[in-house]
Every structure is written in structure tokens, then in C-alpha cells.
Amino acid sequence: MTKNSESTEVAVVAISREDDRFDRTSIILHWLTAFLILAQFVSIWSLEAAGDESSLGLAFLSIHRATGVSTLVAVVARLFWRHYFAYLPPFPPRMPKLQQTIAKANEYGLYILLLAMPITGLARVVLRGQSFDLFVWQVPALMEPNPAMRSLFVEAHEIGAKALMILIGLHAGAALFHRLVLRDGVLQRMLPRMLARAKLTPALAGDDAE
């Protein structure tokens, strides 16, 4: 009887954790954004290694611009979906209020930077007063060169990149902490369903063993 009760409890927990997930569109937009951010960092690091004036460097620069604009579109779409349609699962009941506040602050900070970074990046390009490549188009010069204003956006873009790396590190570290230490299913809520199921089983098995 005890074993049956324990099995039933484990099944109930599995169902509740399975259902307590972000909606599919939110998950897709989350991982699309993550992929685009990774592509931006890899492209800019590759650009620095290849050199600004080389043909390979120019190709990396084109990729960086395209993924930056794509990130802006993805984040705007994500915020729109989040505001009007998304299902946002609540924090785990045992999660301290301070930890919830820090998680929200980190999330809002990421959104702000993910909007600001493409804008500052485009501004530093436009303020050069020269034509530039964007996706498959050649964009003509949109304004006269403004070196003083451009230098402000260059600095803002570089500071924003460092801040973004810090917040991403905190975000990823917190997700791993929930997965490996707390084992409360927070990470699984944003994973694709097949991965979430695969990662949920051992966690439940470990809880049952205790």
C-alpha cells in the first residue's frame, strides 16, 4: 500500500511539473533569442580574430548585424506575446521572495539590454555616414557622419555587451542551480518537451530515493 501511494505521489508530481511549463511559443522564442545572442558573440569574436578589413572579417560583421536586427525583432515579438498571450508559470512555492525578486530583476535587465544592444549597434553604424550591408540589402548612407555622437553609442554598445554577458551568466547559473541543487523543475519549464521529459525522470527518481 505504501509503495502504491508513493508511486501515485510521484506520478502526480510528474504530471504537475509536466503541465507547469511555459507555452510552446514562449519556449520557441526563448531558444531562438538564445541562439541569436550566441551567434552575435561568436561573430564579433571571430571578427576580432580575422581582422576588420579582411573579407572574412567583413562576412562576420555582416552576420553580426543581421543577427542583431533579428534579435531585436525576436525580443519585440517575445514581449508582445508575453504581454497578451503567454502562459507564465508561477515561481515554486518554496522559492524565497528575495530570490524571486532577483530573478525578476535579472529577467527585466536582460530584456532591456536585448533591446538596447541592437539599437546602439545600428546607431554606431548609421552615424558613420556610410552605406552598409544588412541581410541581402545594401543600405545607403542615412545621415551625415557624426563622430562625437557615434563614440557615445560605441561606448554604450561595448558596456552593454559586458553587462549582457554578466546577466546571461547569472541567468544560466541560476537555471543550473535549480536543476542540480534544488531540483525543483524550474529549468524543465523552459526546455523543449522531449528534453524536459528526459531530464524530469532522473530528478524524480532521485527525489523518490531520498
Rank of each mutant, 00 (worst) to 15 (best):
R124Q: 15
T2E: 03
I27G: 05
A174F: 08
Y108N: 14
G57H: 06
A123W: 09
A66V: 05
W81M: 09
L187H: 13
D184E: 02
V186P: 09
W31A: 05
F35G: 07
Y108E: 14
L114C: 11
A86T: 07
A34Y: 07
F80A: 09
L58Y: 12
I44H: 09
H157C: 08
E107D: 15
Q130F: 02
P96E: 05
V139G: 04
V10E: 14
I63V: 13
L61P: 15
V125R: 08
E53P: 04
V10Q: 10
G129M: 12
Q99C: 07
A156G: 01
L170E: 10
A50W: 01
L142A: 01
R65Q: 11
K104L: 14
L98D: 09
L122S: 04
K97P: 14
A11D: 06
K199A: 15
P93F: 13
V186W: 10
T8D: 03
V69D: 12
R94W: 03
N146G: 07
M149T: 07
H83P: 00
S70K: 06
A203D: 14
M143K: 13
A196W: 11
H83M: 14
L38V: 11
T71S: 12
G68R: 00
V10R: 11
L113Q: 10
R124N: 12
E107P: 11
S62K: 08
F91G: 03
T201N: 10
S54Q: 02
F35W: 05
P202V: 08
W137S: 05
E18Y: 14
A59H: 04
L110Q: 03
G57N: 09
R193G: 05
T101R: 09
P202Q: 06
T67G: 01
S131P: 05
F41G: 05
A141L: 13
L122Y: 00
R78K: 10
I28A: 04
D133I: 04
R128H: 05
L176H: 02
I63G: 12
I159G: 02
D208W: 15
V12R: 07
E155L: 11
A77E: 01
E53I: 13
L47F: 06
L110I: 06
S70E: 06
A174H: 10
D184R: 11
P202D: 02
A50E: 06
D23A: 01
E18P: 02
A172H: 04
K97R: 15
E6G: 01
A116L: 13
E210T: 15
A205N: 14
G129A: 12
G206N: 13
L195P: 11
V126Y: 01
H30T: 06
A77H: 00
L164G: 10
F60P: 09
N146R: 08
T67L: 04
S43T: 14
G129E: 12
A163P: 07
L72C: 11
H171K: 08
G160Q: 03
Y87F: 14
I159E: 04
L38Y: 09
L170F: 10
V73H: 10
A14C: 12
P92Q: 15
L58K: 15
P140H: 00
H83W: 12
A203F: 09
L61C: 14
N146F: 11
A174W: 07
W45V: 11
R150M: 09
M95D: 11
L58R: 10
V136Q: 08
E48L: 13
V75R: 02
A86Q: 01
